[in-house]
Nucleic acid binder design. Structure first.
Lengths: 215, 215
DNA sequence: GGTACACTAGAACAATGTTCGATACGGCGC
DNA sequence: GCGCCGTATCGAACATTGTTCTAGTGTACC
């Protein structure tokens, strides 16, 4: 059982979600296809279990960010940790926080984020909104990242820098009159770092939250 | 051609993404399966075209939010319009902003959001980060919404209120010692409105942005 | 009349998730 | 020893999906 979802995660890590097929997983386990159905009832459950499996690791990594002086600093650290996990495993973004019955570790992570917000002393409604915003933001940026690599990168035939550069060239070819903003930021796009981009956006959100808490 | 993607959008609207199959679409058009392949090369392209098709409508709806006194107010209006469109068509969230070559209207929408940010007078890097944050946030919250309805709602056998209430009951059943935050906000969750939740989070983000622009 | 071209349609193919029935293995009561 | 039941596995089959091949329409133009 442990081996089943462990190998499933390995497959997801190696070649993304489309690579996780029951037959490939069975071949890897050295068994038949139907055997997997003894452990999980459907592919959805398999995905759920795989997601929860790696979420356990994320949860452990966020353990140490709990009781600093500044709740917002803790919030930032937790969010960054979660983001880093999704960068490592892009498929996580798509399946994280889908409320299909049981995902205990997802729930625990949600709670951990919420507890930091609670320390800000806001009301229930504001706290609920704030946590939803932070989680939604992480998922949103991560989802963007999750669906980018279009096979060429996974193959190694084209590295990430060349891929982004080709993309930037398309932007540069747009009409400057019609797309002044795109031209204004295209050189930033060409050299941008995903993690830094994420942190900048998160800082904006957290600045807004801090302002609300100060009131 | 117009009829093909029009009917494809109709199918997506009625029963979500899994309902859009080539055979169902062909039956609806009163033709054969292979005929569709004369217009689009793959299902991915079909999804792209369908997405871009409805994005044209969103783009038109945001036309009027361009030149008010307050750029951030315009930004908010555009983001809310986009969010409303995704609420109406949950499948949009999953396919919006995937950079598969050609999605002209997605690009135009990105540009329109960017032009408002440009008026804040920030540098290229800050502007790029700000737009990415806003777009990522919209996608993130919308993605949450997009994958919720698990068939029961679409069938009409269970309405949305009962569905959320059942979910809230699961939360209420958690251990209050281990999940103080969940219990703190569960009653807000039970009566929450998605649009309001979105707007609250967006306001936090925009407050942070306004603060940065003032510096 | 004929030819090129836009378009359609049926049949087939490969791959996927899923189910069914059969077959082991291993302990437990008699 | 022997039957029996719950755990676990496997091979073969099924339905459905995206996709391709190939043959066939019509229609406009020369």
């Amino acid at each position: 059982m442990e081996a089943v979802i462990g190998e499933a995660v390995a497959l997801l890590d190696e070649a993304g979600e489309p690579a996780l097929t029951f037959r490939a997983l069975a071949a890897r386990l050295g068994g038949g296809v139907a055997s997997i159905y003894w452990y999980v009832a459907s592919k959805d459950e398999l995905l759920d279990r795989a997601t929860d499996y790696v979420l356990a690791g994320v949860l452990a990594d966020t353990e140490r960010f709990a009781g600093s002086d500044d709740p917002i600093e803790d919030l930032r650290a937790i969010a960054v940790t979660l983001f880093d996990a999704i960068v490592d495993r892009p498929w996580l973004g798509a399946y994280f926080m889908r409320d299909t019955g049981v995902q205990p570790n997802g729930m625990l992570l949600y709670e951990r984020i919420g507890q930091q917000v609670m320390r800000l002393g806001l009301g229930p409604r504001e706290s609920f909104h704030a946590v939803s915003a932070v989680v939604g933001f992480v998922i949103g940026i991560a989802a963007d990242l999750g669906q980018q690599p279009p096979q060429e990168i996974l193959d190694g035939t084209v590295d990430r820098a060349a891929y982004i550069d080709r993309h930037a060239d398309q932007w540069r070819a747009l009409d400057p009159e019609a797309f002044p903003f795109v031209h204004y930021i295209v050189e930033e796009f060409a050299i941008h770092d995903d993690a830094e981009q994420f942190r900048a956006g998160l800082d904006l959100l957290l600045a807004g939250l801090r302002q609300q808490a100060a009131r």
